[in-house]
Nucleic acid binder design. Structure first.
Lengths: 111, 111
DNA sequence: TAAACTGGTATACTCCAGTATACTGGTAAC
DNA sequence: GTTACCAGTATACTGGAGTATACCAGTTTA
């Protein structure tokens, strides 16, 4: 049986669309690494602005990648919990980390 | 030994940067599927324009992801050959295809 | 009591990735 | 002789992703 290139391309493009911008994957990664609070996530991703993180988390909440939990202690405590669905990105992210690592090695080697 | 989150993030961001825009991954995928000629690649990726494909292939040539071969028959024949390095993306792409497929299933299921 | 933390929002701006469209010069098929 | 293929280039335009910066109200630390 022949592989359906069109179907594969669709699946691929769905994933790329879902990943979207510059910050989605790093945010997922941060959550999967155990970071939960807003400033904690922010600090774990150098370069991201509050605005972008805020947008990203809202978007991810709508897409059921993250659950926003508010605890009414004083001061109020907010935690972002990655959903099981969020964690299904794990393999892709791991492959990306591996590739990036090898790439860096290769670049250093060349110099 | 503790995992180095900063190092992992760097590797991840390197990969994301390398992937760059909307078309890099689909083009790599097309090449890895055996498409070689300009119009052939173009047709295999619905929605891409000649301009974007041209830019992408040039960029990929500079980054040693693709080799441009010109055969001086008449009419001139041009072929784009993916380098071994290009093929190292295979795992990431496969994981992306898998994820996209599962995602689609999940979405259809919900309706 | 001033500084620094929390979890964000508001406004303004910029730049370039991606789109749209037309065109070229040569070859080959109908 | 006109339509269609090949492998692209040229020009013009735009939307929105991402940046920069300031601000808020409350709390805790020095």
């Amino acid at each position: 049986m022949e592989r359906d290139q069109a179907e594969e391309l669709r699946a691929l493009q769905d994933t790329l669309y879902f990943i979207g911008g510059k910050w989605r994957v790093p945010v997922i990664n941060s959550l999967c690494n155990g970071n939960r609070r807003f400033r904690e996530i922010e600090r774990s991703i150098p370069g991201i602005t509050t605005r972008m993180l805020s947008k990203e988390l809202k978007d991810m909440e709508m897409n059921k990648l993250v659950t926003r939990m508010v605890y009414n202690d004083t001061p109020v405590l907010v935690e972002y919990e990655p959903t099981p669905y969020c964690r299904t990105f794990g393999k892709i992210i791991q492959e990306m980390i591996n590739w990036g690592r090898d790439h860096r090695k290769k670049v250093i080697q060349k110099q």
